[in-house]
Design a protein around this nucleic acid. Structure first.
Lengths: 338, 338
DNA sequence: TCGAATTGTCGAAGCGCTTCAACAGTTGGA
DNA sequence: TCCAACTGTTGAAGCGCTTCGACAATTCGA
């Protein structure tokens, strides 16, 4: 293996000069710099990561705790991870993947100084990991917005705002009974932060606008269509739907189209909702953007810059009304059935 | 931070004794061992990963190059990654996530001694990374079976065998014209190893049994159903289908049920095919098992144990005929239309 | 009962890097 | 002309660990 000593020898300078050329922490004459860089290139020198980290007390690695658990929306998780990795690489950082969803993984990575910082996904309301993170001196950012996470930096999509925006949009389109088909039951039962917040925003806006809203868990499979049947059987007055379930979206949308007289609003990553026909409006989850924003926040923390405690990416309603045959609004549905 | 010196002092022994207690590389009296372990617990000592790796010349980290690129089946990728992580953790190894899908990421991780070994997913036939890996002295295992990968250890599901098994099963059920709806076009165009092999196995078995088989790219969306329509329009004699596309599976199966007279065989992870109604037979992709097997192979390599160059996990046909109303076989279809 | 083998422990030499303190050489203000 | 202030470079001291060789102390075969 080629070490810094080899480079120094080849360039005819001392080891420390090579180090200073690489880090730029001391002024070096152009001439010396050139010789050192030539030697580095010629030898294909790569500094030994552990040696560097031992001496400098930083690893240039971020620990990412990503859930590979059941029920989560793999598509969204992957995009968030992609955003994290991209942003991290832009800062010369690498990602250590931690998948045990407990505090132990965090303690291990931080305790062994394997990482400079931690990024934690899929945090639940009242998660034991929050306490663990608070104990740690390692900086961290949560992707999510749990209760009890006050002292930590949180970044997420504004699910509460999205729920409200969706409800308002449905109200605006004339619906008076609306339903949210969301995450599968196991996710709701875990009180995953985003699911809770979406529900709160949706029902809150329904109440505020005096319309009747209901919430239903929804499996990640074709059975979602049957859930829609059940929901409509229980309340045939429902005409507006918000779907927040990537795997169920296409099935529910298809069934809704069969039934007719329904308007479906999707909450999903853009590339998912775009492939589903018949969706006039949708709210896009900027999954990759969440990963990026969280990583940015982490770097700000690492740099000691002031960072807002909570950053929520705003929901944006995207309309494809001009591209798609107008979906049923209640009036049209009434006209049809007349 | 608490160091090995703190532990040594607290236990009243030398630093090297502490090290030997932890590694077990030298005999230590039970008494001393107990005192050292008590000190470790009391101080919550965690060895500094970089210091350890610098001294021992090994990192206990595996670099995993996982694709976050478009078109791949995120579900399968996630499961493979989960299998890798689980097996790695069982050996006290961590995973460094490399997502740039080029050779540079591999060179960087290996060159900087960040990893002890490399695991590379989603390898294409004739992939430039194969050459890079061969140059490297870092051991590596490919998940996939590319052309030109001869000199490297490869682990994968036996897609060729699965294609053949599927075709044979369809033949056995009496079909004489069969079609494979597979990966989206972009994946086929890339000549991703698994897609190529599946096709080869499928068509090979068709030829061997004298039935007519065709292959069609299939988008990851509801449009897959339209592809089925087109395929049947072009050749109405087709009665047997093999679907290898997680996102398209439910849509194609649903359309096939509408049309009637078709038998659908799925090739997908068990938890995906299980949620789709009307699938009598399926071949399960043991995604997590692939990750595990690949990681096992990597550890064998690392331990200097003899390792087979290629390991393919065998396809297994799972029948739910006893659970599901029997899907149409050509005879029944004939009976129906009569 | 003696030397050889075994057991348990320790000191010290690195692993490859960063960074501090020091210093030679140059510049420039008074 | 002299000294203060830079500029550019270096040697050496670690960072926290592993591991080699050495060495007491103990055990054991003859």
């Amino acid at each position: 293996m080629v070490t810094i000593a080899d480079v120094a020898q080849k360039a005819g300078v001392s080891i420390s000069t090579v180090s200073y050329v690489m880090s730029g922490k001391r002024a070096i004459s152009q001439d010396t710099k050139d010789r050192v860089e030539a030697a580095i290139d010629a030898l294909e020198y790569r500094p030994h990561a552990s040696a560097r980290s031992l001496a400098s007390r930083s690893t240039n690695v971020i620990g990412l705790q990503a859930p590979l658990r059941s029920g989560v929306d793999v598509h969204v998780v992957m995009e968030i991870v992609a955003g994290v990795v991209r942003e991290a690489r832009a800062h010369q950082y690498d990602i250590l993947l931690l998948t045990s969803d407990d505090a132990e993984g965090l303690n291990r990575a931080a305790g062994a100084s394997m990482v400079d910082a931690l990024l934690v996904m899929d945090v639940e309301s009242d998660d034991p990991r929050i306490g663990a993170l608070r104990e740690l001196s390692t900086p961290s950012v949560l992707i999510g917005l749990p209760q009890g996470g006050e002292a930590l930096t949180c970044v997420d999509f504004d699910f509460e705002g999205a729920g409200a925006l969706a409800a308002e949009r449905l109200v605006e389109r004339g619906h008076t009974r609306v339903a949210l088909l969301g995450a599968p039951r196991e996710v709701l039962d875990r009180h995953t932060s985003y699911a809770d917040r979406l529900i709160r925003g949706f029902l809150g806006a329904c109440t505020a606008h005096g319309v009747i809203g209901s919430v239903h868990p929804c499996p990640n499979s074709v059975e979602a269509a049957e859930v829609l049947d059940e929901v409509l059987a229980a309340d045939p007055g429902i005409t507006g739907l918000l779907i927040h379930n990537e795997s169920a979206l296409a099935h529910v949308a298809a069934r809704a189209a069969e039934i007719g007289g329904l308007e479906v609003l999707a909450l999903s990553p853009a590339d998912v909702s775009r492939t589903v026909p018949g969706l006039a409006d949708s709210i896009e989850i900027p999954a990759e953007g969440i990963g990026e924003a969280a990583t940015e926040a982490l770097f700000a923390l690492l740099a000691g810059e002031p960072t807002p405690r909570v950053r929520l990416l705003p929901p944006v309603l995207v309309s494809r009304r001009d591209l798609v045959a107008d979906a049923a609004s209640p009036d049209e549905a009434a006209a049809e059935s007349a």
